[in-house]
Simulated assay, not measured.
Amino acid sequence: FLGGTVSGLRNFRTDFLEEWPTPGTGPHFDTTMSSNFTGLVGKTVQLVCKVKNLGNRTVSWVRHRDIHLLTVGRYTYTSDQRFEALHSPHTEEWSLKIRYPQRKDSGIYECQISTTPPIGHPVYLTIVEPETIIVGAPDLFVNKGSTINLTCLVRYAPEPPPKMTWSHNAEEINFDSPRGGISLVTEKGPETTSRLMIQRAVPSDSGIYTCLPSNANPSSIRVHVVKEEHPAAMHHGDGSTSYAKSLLLPLSIILTLNIIFV
């Protein structure tokens, strides 16, 4: 009986304990690594997972959306050639490379270690598209004689736009035109800002203004140059629009009529 007990303990150590390593000594994830990754549409992105004490285990990447096995070790197991396993020998980092990512690639990916059962570490990928915004769109009302001040923002572009062009009613704005008083200031960075200023606005300056970054979609705004403060919408200088004034007069008339007929 004693021999059977010793044999059973030996089997227990072999079959069970080796599969459940002591915390901190067996393979485990470096959780100090970032779990959130952001990529740009069409620009290669890498998800990185750091594993310590891997030993003879293997690391895999699984896509949560469809429980699809993408990579095992340094081998890629999916037919989608945009995905690739990356690992430099004698390092702790295991990466999943995604070429030409699309918005649909956003979601949860899990880095797994081949213990029994496997242990996993989820990472979150967000793929964003370049976007162009003109502050105050779709409509801006300005007084005749004042300055038209338009601000265009370009976000999530693969790089700052090499060129920023503005057009008025589908014609590129000529800063050397006889009209004068037109200036453009562009500040490039992770978020590129382009400010178009047109001094001494006249009715012919009304129309559709379009900001056209060379590496992102265009954005437009309709500018109305009015002779006096427009009753239905007032420009506040920050691109916001107020409709309160247009409601005051009708409301006062309604209240007066109510008093008369009560």
Results as ranks from 00 to 15, higher is better:
R63K: 15
R63H: 07
V41M: 05
G42R: 08
Y75E: 06
V123Y: 00
V48W: 00
Y100D: 13
K52C: 15
T31K: 03
E84C: 06
T132E: 09
Y75V: 10
V62S: 15
P89M: 10
T44M: 13
V135C: 12
A137H: 09
T14V: 10
V62W: 01
T126S: 07
N11C: 09
H90A: 13
D105Y: 01
P21V: 15
T115W: 00
H87S: 13
T71W: 02
P21S: 07
G26Q: 02
G136S: 06
G39R: 05
S95R: 06
D15V: 06
T132F: 05
D30N: 06
S35N: 05
R99I: 11
D66N: 10
V128F: 14
G39Y: 04
P118S: 13
T132W: 03
L69R: 02
I133M: 11
R10N: 10
D15H: 04
D15M: 02
I134W: 01
I127V: 09
R57Q: 01
K43Q: 12
M33V: 08
E92M: 03
L96Y: 04
T38F: 14
T126G: 05
L47G: 08
M33E: 15
E84V: 07
V59Q: 01
H68E: 10
D80N: 11
G107V: 15
A85Y: 03
N56Q: 04
H87T: 13
W94P: 01
T132V: 09
S35I: 03
Y100H: 14
P117F: 07
A137I: 13
V59W: 00
H28L: 05
